[in-house]
Design a protein around this nucleic acid. Structure first.
Length: 735
DNA sequence: TGAGTGTGGTAG
DNA sequence: ATCGCTACCACACTCA
C-alpha cells in the first residue's frame, strides 16, 4: 500500500541523494560553473569583483552570470563577505535596509553591460538603482521633518550615495527607441485630450482617432516584416475572429456541455458511496473527423471510408501550409500524422490525406446528442469537454462488459460516432483505460493492472505531464512511468514543488489528483476566470491600433461577463511581444511566433471597459508597439464566497478538540479515492446533528484529505478559503 | 503568515 | 495565408 504523504508540508529541504548537504551541493555546483566559465574567459575585466545578482533581472541573471564569468568575474546569488557589487532591478523595503547596511554599491544590470561595452570598470554612480536614490531622498526628507537625528547606520550607504546624486542617465544606444517612445508619448497625450474634449462614447472616440490615424499611414517600418510578410490589420474584430477559431469553440463547447447538464440534470440512479469506487471515462474517438464525416453525404462517406482523413482549416495542398491538423483519424495516424501537426508536414507523410472542413455547427449538435445519451446512466456526471466526460458508477453496474458495449452501441445509433470507454476505480485509471483502448475500445482496469500496463510508457503518457514536465523529468533521470513509480518522492517534490511532485507521483500509481466534481443540476456554474484573447493575425503598427485592439478585447470581455452573469473585480492584460531573435522558422503564418509576455493587472469596480487606459499604461513604456503580436485579457472573477468571519478571536483555540479530531482522521489507514466518505471509523462524524454541516464535513474533509494527504494539510492549505467558516461550523457542532 | 500579484504549465 | 482559445492549477515572490 502506498501511503499518501502530506502534500503541503514545508519541511526542510531534503538532503542531496549523493550524501552531500544541500549547501555543499550548491557550492560545488557553483564552483563547477565558475570553472567552466573560467575556461571560456575572454579578459580579466571583472577579475577582482565578486558580483551578487539579486532577483529578477533584465537581461536574465543567467545571461549576466555568463557575461561576468567570461570576463573573469565571480558571481554569487546570496550575500557573502567579499561581495563588491550588488546587481538588482527592484529593491523591496526590507532588502533596501538589508543592503544599505553594507557599503556596497547597488547597481542596475546595465552597469555590467556598459562595463563590458567600454571594456573598463566604469564609475558606479550613474548606475545606482533609481529606486534607491528616490527612497533615500524620501527617507532623508522624513528624517529631517520628524527629528534632526543622526542618521542611523542603516542609512550610511544612502548618505554616501547622496553625495553623488546624479540624474540617472538612460544609456540607451538605440536612439531610435527613444524617438519611438517620445512619439508614443505624443500620441498618448493626443488621445487623452480627445477624451477630455469629446464627451461621447469612448469606443467611438477611439474609432475616430483610429481612422484619422490610418489615413496618415504611419511611417513606422516593421522589423519583423522582413521575416514574415503578413499584412497589417487596420481593424481587428475579435468576435469575427473567434467565429473561425477552433480552439475558441472548443472552450465554448465545454461551457455549453456544462450548461446542458445543468439544464438537463442527469436522471440516472445515484451512485452508492459505500460501494467500491467505480468511474467511467468516455471519449469520442477523433471527434472532429468523425463529426465532419458524419455530416457528409452517404456517397461521400462511402468514398472516404477507410481513407486517411483529417480536419483542417485549409485545403491548401501547397508545400508551405502552416495550417494545423485539428484532428486526424486512425488511418492517418498510421502514417505518423498527429493532431496539431502542420498540414505541410502531414502531407509529406501521406499524399493521399483527405482534408475535411470544419463544421462547428455540427460539432456542437453532436456534442449535445452525445451527452443526451449519458443522462440516464448515473446522477453524477463531470464533463471534461465537448466529447469527453467522467461518470461515477459506484454500485450501479453489474455486468461491465455488457454495459460498455450497450452504451457504445447506443451512442453509435444516435450520433453515428464511435467512442472509447474506460472503467477504473479512480478517474485517472478510467482515463488511462480509455487511452489504452482507443480507438473503439472498452476496458476496465484496476490499480494493479494500471501500474503494470502503464509501466513502460513514457512519462508524458500520463495526463498532466506535458512537454515541459517531461523534459524536466528526463533531466532527473525519469523517462518511463515505471521510473516515476519508483522515483524518490523527495526528489520529485524538490524538483516540481511539494504538491506538484506529490501529484505526479500519485498519477503514476493511479491515484487521482483531480477531484471528481459532478455537475449539480439547477446550479449555475461559477467560474473563477473569464478570458478573451486573440493571438493570431495581430499585427499592430501604431499605439492607436493597439489601444483600439485592447479596447475591442475589453468590450468582448464585458459581453462575456454579462452573458455568464459573473462578477469581475480584477482584470489582467497579457501582451505578447515578439521575442528578440525569435526564430521565424517556428512561426505560423499569421501566428505570434516566439513571444515574451508582459503582464499588468488592476482591480476594478464597475464596467470593465472603463479601465482600459489604466491597464494598458503600466506596460506601454516597456516595448515598441510594432513588436506586439498578440494580446490576452483575462478577467478574474471574485469568488462568491460566504461571509468569512476574519475575527481572530473566532479562531479555533481548543487544541484538545482539534488534536482529538486530527488523531481520529490520521488513524484512517487507507484513503478511498474520490468517495466523499472517509473510510474507517466515521461514526463520530455521523454524530453531527445538523445534516448540512455533516455533509459538508464529509465532503470537504474527505475531498481535501484525498487531495492533500492528511488533515494537517487540509487545515493548513491556503486556497481553502472557506476553512474558517467550515471549521467554525464543525467545531460548533462536533465534539 | 495570509493576501496580492506575476509566471508558467496543461488540456481539449 | 490562416483563424495559436480558455480555464484552472501550482508556485515564486513581495508586502504588511
Amino acid at each position: 500500500m502506498y501511503r499518501i504523504k502530506a502534500a503541503n508540508t514545508y519541511e526542510k529541504r531534503p538532503e542531496d541523494p549523493r550524501g552531500n548537504s544541500y549547501v555543499d551541493y550548491r557550492h560545488k555546483k557553483q564552483d563547477k560553473l565558475d570553472e567552466q566559465l573560467n575556461q571560456q574567459k575572454i579578459d580579466d575585466l571583472f577579475v577582482d569583483c565578486v558580483i551578487m545578482l539579486n532577483g529578477r533581472l533584465e537581461p536574465s541573471a543567467n545571461y549576466l552570470r555568463q557575461l561576468i564569468g567570461t570576463h573573469g568575474g565571480k558571481v554569487v546569488f546570496q550575500y557573502m563577505p567579499g561581495v563588491t557589487h550588488i546587481i538588482c532591478q527592484n529593491l523591496s523595503a526590507s532588502k533596501f535596509i538589508q543592503y544599505s547596511k553594507k557599503t556596497i554599491p547597488v547597481l542596475l544590470p546595465k552597469y555590467i553591460l556598459s562595463c563590458v561595452e567600454h571594456k573598463t570598470l566604469l564609475d558606479t554612480t550613474e548606475f545606482i538603482l533609481p529606486q534607491l536614490l528616490l527612497e533615500q531622498t524620501q527617507q532623508t526628507q522624513q528624517t529631517q521633518q520628524t527629528q534632526a537625528q543622526e542618521p542611523s547606520p542603516e542609512f550610511r550607504m544612502s548618505q554616501i550615495n547622496f553625495n553623488y546624486v546624479v540624474e540617472p542617465v538612460v544609456l540607451d544606444p538605440d536612439s531610435e527607441r527613444i524617438q519611438q517612445k517620445l512619439q508614443n508619448l505624443e500620441q498618448q497625450i493626443k488621445i487623452y485630450q480627445l477624451n477630455e474634449i469629446a464627451q461621447i462614447d469612448y469606443g467611438e472616440v477611439i474609432q475616430n482617432v483610429q481612422n484619422t490615424d490610418s489615413q496618415k499611414s504611419s511611417p513606422t517600418q516593421l522589423q519583423y516584416i522582413q521575416n514574415s510578410p503578413v499584412k497589417t490589420h487596420d481593424k481587428i474584430n475579435v468576435r469575427e475572429y473567434h467565429e473561425q477559431s477552433r480552439l475558441h469553440h472548443l472552450s465554448q463547447w465545454k461551457v455549453e456541455a456544462q450548461q446542458f447538464l445543468i439544464q438537463n440534470p442527469p436522471q440516472g440512479p445515484k451512485p452508492n458511496d459505500t460501494a467500491a469506487p467505480l468511474f467511467m471515462h468516455i471519449d469520442i474517438d477523433c471527434f472532429f473527423v468523425q463529426a465532419s464525416y458524419s455530416a457528409l453525404s452517404a456517397q461521400q462517406q462511402l468514398l472516404y471510408q477507410s481513407l486517411p482523413l483529417c480536419v483542417c482549416s485549409s485545403s491548401n495542398t501547397g508545400q508551405n501550409s502552416t495550417a494545423d491538423i485539428a484532428s486526424c483519424n486512425y488511418v492517418a495516424r498510421s502514417y505518423g500524422i498527429r493532431n496539431g501537426m502542420w498540414l505541410r508536414t502531414a502531407q509529406e507523410k501521406c499524399k493521399e490525406l483527405v482534408i475535411l472542413k470544419y463544421d462547428f455547427q455540427v460539432y456542437s449538435e453532436q456534442s449535445k446528442r452525445f451527452y443526451q445519451n449519458l443522462l440516464d446512466i448515473s446522477s453524477q456526471i463531470m464533463p471534461v469537454s465537448c466529447d469527453e466526460c467522467y461518470i461515477k458508477l459506484s454500485g450501479l453496474i453489474s455486468n461491465k462488459e455488457e454495459f460498455m458495449t450497450e452504451l457504445k452501441a447506443k451512442i453509435k445509433r444516435s450520433t453515428g460516432l464511435i467512442t472509447s470507454i474506460g472503467l477504473g476505480s479512480s478517474l485517472i485509471q478510467a482515463r488511462i483505460a480509455t487511452k489504452l483502448g482507443k480507438p473503439n475500445g472498452q476496458i476496465h482496469i484496476g490499480k494493479e493492472q494500471f501500474i503494470e500496463l502503464i509501466k513502460h510508457k513514457t512519462v508524458d503518457f500520463l495526463p498532466g505531464i506535458g512537454q515541459e514536465t517531461a523534459t524536466v523529468m528526463n533531466s532527473i533521470g525519469i523517462y518511463s512511468v515505471g521510473d516515476l513509480q519508483h522515483a524518490q518522492l523527495n526528489l520529485l517534490q524538490q524538483t516540481f514543488g511539494e504538491i506538484k511532485g506529490q501529484q505526479l507521483f500519485n498519477s503514476s500509481l493511479g491515484i487521482d489528483s483531480l477531484v471528481f466534481k459532478p455537475i449539480q443540476g439547477g446550479q449555475q456554474q461559477k467560474s473563477k476566470q473569464l478570458q478573451v484573447s486573440q493571438n493570431f493575425g495581430v499585427r499592430l503598427t501604431t499605439l492607436l491600433q493597439l489601444k483600439q485592439f485592447i479596447y475591442n478585447l475589453l468590450v468582448e470581455l464585458q459581453a462575456k461577463q454579462k452573458e455568464r452573469n459573473q462578477q469581475i473585480n480584477r482584470i489582467i492584460l497579457h501582451l505578447n511581444v515578439v521575442a528578440k531573435n525569435a526564430n521565424p522558422q517556428w512561426a505560423k503564418n499569421g501566428g505570434c511566433g516566439q513571444c515574451e509576455k508582459t503582464t499588468s493587472s488592476c482591480s476594478i469596480q464597475g464596467e470593465v471597459t472603463e479601465y482600459y487606459e489604466q491597464i494598458l499604461e503600466p506596460i506601454l513604456s516597456q516595448f515598441r508597439v510594432e513588436d506586439v503580436r498578440g494580446a490576452d485579457i483575462v478577467g478574474v472573477c471574485g469568488e462568491q464566497q460566504p461571509e468569512i468571519i476574519r475575527n481572530k478571536t473566532n479562531k479555533i483555540n481548543d487544541r484538545t478538540s482539534l488534536n482529538q479530531f486530527k488523531e481520529l482522521l490520521n488513524n484512517f489507514q487507507e484513503q478511498q479515492q474520490n468517495t466523499n466518505l472517509i473510510t474507517g471509523d466515521i461514526s463520530q462524524i455521523d454524530q453531527i446533528q445538523d445534516e448540512n454541516v455533516r455533509e459538508k464535513v464529509k465532503q470537504v474533509i474527505g475531498l481535501q484529505i484525498i487531495k492533500r494527504g492528511n488533515l494537517d494539510d487540509v487545515l493548513k492549505y491556503d486556497d481553502f478559503q472557506q476553512k474558517n467558516y467550515y471549521m467554525q461550523q464543525m467545531w460548533g457542532e462536533f465534539l
